[in-house]
């Protein structure tokens, strides 16, 4: 079923909407949640919450890219779920690495500094669009889709070291940009 038809089902409050949405995107959303949670029960729970959240968002929302819309819901739920559980147990290698890398790009700023979060997101988007296609794909696969280094290396047919180098270079570049935007 086309995305526009699925969105229409939500707008018409047709209960088959959730069935159609999960039929089309369960694999996609499962991968996103699994990348962080690494646990079948938590991942399934995340997916169920995704479909019901979508029911709450549409209407009034009418997303232009449905895959990204539901993927974003899943990602947010997975991160929330993960944070609730992380204090209780030690993180494994991949999860610890990706969280550590993202934490390195987080920072505090005072309310007097002009940049609101929305403007920082715009800066991130501008940074991403200026990257070469492969660098952009690597960055988004790592920090949005939460893929492992190994999976990204396989996707691009290069070594893991190559991916680590690429991410490190671009994280540093982005951090400099974000700090400069906040401090000016």
């Amino acid at each position: 079923m086309e995305d526009t038809e699925i969105i229409e089902l939500f707008w018409n409050r047709d209960e088959t909407a959730i069935q159609e949405l999960s039929h089309k995107y369960s694999g996609y959303c499962y991968k996103i949640a699994w990348n962080l949670l690494q646990n079948h029960e938590d991942t399934e729970e995340c997916l169920n919450d995704t479909w019901f959240a979508a029911w709450g968002y549409m209407p009034p929302k009418r997303p232009s890219v449905l895959s990204a819309f539901v993927g974003r819901i899943t990602r947010g739920l997975a991160i929330d779920c993960f944070r609730k559980k992380q204090a209780a147990k030690r993180m494994d290698g991949h999860i610890a690495d990706v969280c550590g890398e993202m934490d390195a790009l987080s920072f505090s700023y005072t309310v007097e500094e002009r940049m609101a979060e929305k403007e920082l997101i715009t800066s991130i988007e501008r940074f991403l669009r200026k990257l070469p296609d492969a660098d952009r794909d690597i960055f988004i696969r790592r920090y949005w889709y939460l893929d492992s280094i190994k999976d990204i290396a396989k996707r691009h047919g290069v070594s893991q070291g190559c991916i680590k180098t690429n991410l490190c270079r671009n994280r540093k570049k982005l951090y400099r940009i974000l700090r400069r935007e906040v401090l000016i």
Partner: peptide, 10 residues
């Protein structure tokens, strides 16, 4: 971030 960026990497 923008959905088109996400979708392209998907």
């Amino acid at each position: 971030i923008d959905e088109t960026l996400i979708a392209e990497a998907g």
